[in-house]
């Protein structure tokens, strides 16, 4: 098992109230999975992804990554875990605007401390996502779909244990969304890279091999598709 949430609870203070985002969930993800966290907004799926991605810490419970409890790690060590082990794909692409496509991808390698054959790896990653001819372009010179491909390349290039994608197609039209999903699925099948993503779109859920349904901070369903 690559990662595991054990009795994870997450609350946020909101004024005088406390909002419960996750109310003690248990879920595990195995290597090579292509899993979606599904649910309406406010169901806690993004919170769950953030915790697995080590972008946030649980209020209580354990987040295990490679069998290790990340709670023991400091901010910088957690950053190192993210840099080496986790790839991110965001809803709004989140490319660094002043860097070219290649540089954005290169940044991930640098932060992961992977310096050997950096240039070739960057090129390969961009070729893999079909952006061979767009390597020198800045994000604002690329379409939304192209930007998300750069983001996928950025996540893939360091060969992470898991790629976390929060609503990766929400900002794309259906055609581009499909293409992105195909690409992710393809990478999953070719390199056995674990993908964990969230969506509230039934069309997207249909492409997953496992659907974990969340509602009001609790898991209400976990089904494996063919």
């Amino acid at each position: 098992m690559i990662c595991q949430l054990v009795g994870v609870k997450k609350t946020y203070p909101m004024g005088e109230l406390t909002v419960v985002a996750l109310n003690g969930i248990d879920v595990g993800v195995d290597e090579g999975e292509f899993t979606v966290f599904a649910g309406p907004s406010g169901s806690g799926k993004t919170t769950a992804l953030n915790l697995i991605g080590c972008l946030d810490r649980p209020t209580s419970g354990q987040v295990l990554l490679d069998g290790r409890d990340v709670a023991t790690l400091g901010d910088d060590a957690l950053g190192q875990v993210r840099a080496r082990r986790i790839g991110f794909i965001f809803q709004s692409f989140n490319l660094i605007p002043v860097l070219t496509a290649a540089e954005n991808v290169e940044l991930a390698l640098r932060l992961a401390g992977l310096d050997k054959g950096r240039k070739e790896k960057v090129e390969q990653a961009l070729v893999d996502v079909g952006l061979k001819d767009f390597m020198g372009r800045r994000p604002n010179q690329l379409s939304g779909g192209q930007q998300q491909r750069v983001a996928i390349a950025r996540a893939l290039v360091k060969k992470p244990a898991i790629i976390i994608a929060d609503e990766p197609t929400a900002n794309l039209d259906s055609q581009n969304g499909e293409a992105i999903l195909d690409l992710m699925r393809q990478m999953n099948e070719r390199d056995r890279i674990t993908f964990l993503f969230s969506t509230h779109d039934p069309m997207v859920m249909a492409r997953a091999r496992r659907v974990v349904r969340l509602k009001d901070g609790a898991i209400v369903g976990d089904e494996r598709l063919a």
């Binding site: 991605g53 972008l55 901010d75 910088d76 950053g79 190192q80 875990v81 993210r82 840099a83 080496r84 991110f88 965001f90 709004s92 989140n94 490319l95 660094i96 605007p97 940044l107 991930a108 932060l111 992961a112 950025r154």
Partner: peptide, 15 residues
């Protein structure tokens, strides 16, 4: 702020 978040997510240290 989003860019900063991204850099942190990608593993850049706060320093």
């Amino acid at each position: 702020i989003r860019e900063i978040g991204t850099l942190l997510a990608l593993g850049m240290s706060r320093r």
